[in-house]
Structure formats: structure tokens, C-alpha cells
């Protein structure tokens, strides 16, 4: 099964990580991703650029409303993700718990739909 580890930061944690020395964090992430690869569970992973560069398309309006952001209206920001392939959500959670992340950050783990789910 594939699981997405969705990284959600409280604003303060995101700011803290942005201000933290980049090299050690990059190295820790690299080691973590290597460990995932060597266990055969790594599928993909990406970090996201800061929300200020983003836009939000809101389908509540018709036509959809495009605004810069998101700013302020969220308590937690989605800042990156992994997709890993493990045989159970328990194993996915054990891997998630080993990510080099700190206070103020959460990893939400969600199973990725398979083709079989979609055609049921």
C-alpha cells in the first residue's frame, strides 16, 4: 500500500525551520530518505516553497476565485510530503515517527487510493 505522509506545520514551526541552518537539516533529510530507499519503501518526496509564492483557487465562487496565498486564514500549512510503500499503516507510522522533524510539526498519514479503489 502507498501512504502519503503530509507534513503540516504550525506557522511558528515553519518560520523556525526557515530560519534554521539549512545544511544540517538537508543532511538529516537526506539520511532519512536514504534509509527509506534502503528499506525499499521510498516512492517520492518533495518539500514545498513558501506559501507566499503560492496562489489559492477557490471553487466556492463561480468562476473560481484566484487569490495570492494562503495568508493568515490557516492554522497549519501543508509544507511537504513523502509517499512511501509499506504493507500496513502501522509500518508507515513507524517510519513517519523517524522523520527528522520537531515540535509544531505534524505528519498526517493517509493511504493513497489504488486503481482498484477507484474502479470498485
Amino acid at each position: 500500500m502507498q501512504y502519503m505522509l503530509i507534513m503540516r506545520d504550525e506557522d511558528a514551526a515553519a518560520v523556525e525551520r526557515r530560519d534554521a541552518p539549512f545544511e544540517p537539516m538537508l543532511e538529516a533529510m537526506g539520511r532519512y530518505n536514504d534509509a527509506l530507499a534502503e528499506a525499499g519503501v521510498f516512492v517520492t518526496a518533495h518539500g514545498l516553497a513558501k506559501p507566499g509564492e503560492g496562489v489559492v483557487v477557490d471553487f466556492t465562487a463561480d468562476p473560481p476565485l484566484i487569490t495570492d496565498g494562503p495568508y493568515g486564514e490557516t492554522k497549519e500549512l501543508f509544507n511537504g510530503f513523502w509517499i512511501i510503500d509499506t504493507d500496513s499503516i502501522g509500518v508507515a507510522a513507524e517510519w513517519a515517527a523517524r522523520a527528522p522533524l520537531g515540535p509544531g510539526t505534524k505528519l498526517e498519514i493517509r493511504r493513497v487510493h489504488t486503481e482498484a479503489d477507484l474502479h470498485r
Binding site: M1, D34, A37, E38, A39, G40, V41, F42, D85, D87
Partner: peptide
């Protein structure tokens, strides 16, 4: 499919090694 998935994980592991 659980066996096939296991084999794919083993191969990914070997690719890394």
C-alpha cells in the same frame, strides 16, 4: 498482490544497495 509488492520492495532495497 501482497507477495508481488514484497518483491518490489526487495528490489527497491537492492537498487539502493
Amino acid at each position: 498482490p501482497e507477495l508481488s509488492r514484497e518483491a518490489i520492495r526487495l528490489a527497491r532495497q537492492l537498487v539502493a544497495l
